[in-house]
């Protein structure tokens, strides 16, 4: 398939794949700047796995009433709040806490699905992978509303997030309640990750929480520039990646993430040359 055919097919038959992946790409990339800056990248990876546990639970009655999205959102938000409390425990390092939750989530997911009644393996696979090509209009609309709310929230809380990220001690001394803003940040990340994982899968979400922000850090010299570069990659990579997937007849999500990783490599080389 040629590039023109790929674009035509994409727009005609899979428009929500395009809109959905661009939306999630942009949102994860912008949020990811703060995730990377706060050194909580692994937190994003853990949340993707927790959201899959939440989703798995909805295959088990009576939790099926929550719906797949509801299950993923509620469990991820709950775990994010619990984790933010556990992070203040100085006896156990933060990454160890995350490691425990990460492996436990994977184990739980396997066990739940093994014992869940009436589960079609293919259906579960699709839901878990978050097949981009099968994003429904309803799911897209829900994610659009959530994204708009998340973006508004990020803009509203830009100052506390920036201050807390740079210097939490002084921010607290100035009257910003550190624990509350910390929880707000984790909760926001959890909701975005849960909804996005359900829409496009864990590989896409974790990839875009990390790769575009790191490319931004390498290419831009100002914070706004970093957010701009990350956001642009969050928009461009899904579009170009989807076209590449159609042209080369390869799976969409790996193609998009691999493209983003290739751009990151170029960013790293540019950064090396500049130095």
């Amino acid at each position: 398939m040629g590039i023109v055919d790929a674009v035509t097919t994409l727009l005609a038959e899979f428009p929500y794949a395009l809109y959905g992946s661009v939306l999630v790409g942009l949102l994860c990339a912008v949020l990811g700047v703060y995730v990377v800056a706060r050194r909580v990248v692994f937190f994003g990876a853990v949340l993707t796995q927790v959201s899959l546990v939440g989703l798995s639970l909805t295959f088990v009655p009576p939790l099926d009433v929550l719906g797949h999205t509801g299950g993923a959102l509620s469990l991820t938000a709950l775990v994010a709040l619990l984790l933010s409390g556990l992070f203040s425990n100085r006896k156990v390092p933060r990454d160890a806490v995350l490691g425990v939750v990460f492996v436990s989530a994977i184990a739980l997911r396997i066990l739940i699905l093994q014992k869940a009644p009436q589960v079609e393996v293919a259906e579960v696979e699709n839901l878990m992978r978050g097949d981009i090509l099968f994003i429904t209009p309803g799911l897209f609309l829900f994610t659009l509303l959530l994204s708009a709310a998340a973006m508004a929230f990020m803009l509203l809380l830009a100052r506390p997030f920036a201050f807390m990220g740079l210097d939490p001690e002084t921010a607290e001394a100035q009257g910003f309640r550190a624990r509350r803003w910390e929880q707000a940040f984790y909760l926001l990340t959890a909701l975005v990750v849960a909804a996005a994982t359900h829409l496009v899968g864990d590989l896409f979400v974790f990839g875009f929480l990390v790769i575009p922000p790191v490319a931004g850090l390498l290419l831009a010299k100002r914070v706004r520039g970093i957010i701009l570069v990350a956001g642009m990659l969050g928009v461009l990579c899904p579009i170009v990646g989807l076209v590449i997937a159609f042209v080369m007849d390869v799976p969409a999500t790996p193609a998009i993430v691999a493209l983003a990783a290739a751009i990151l490599l170029v960013a790293w080389l540019i950064n090396r040359v500049r130095r």
Partner: peptide, 23 residues
């Protein structure tokens, strides 16, 4: 102070006014 993000001197100094500025 976490220096991962390259906040400028002006931006950092302005953070001192955040309490007065609100959200």
């Amino acid at each position: 102070v976490n220096l991962i993000l390259p906040y400028t001197v002006g931006e950092v100094a302005m953070m001192g006014r955040y309490r007065n500025l609100g959200l």
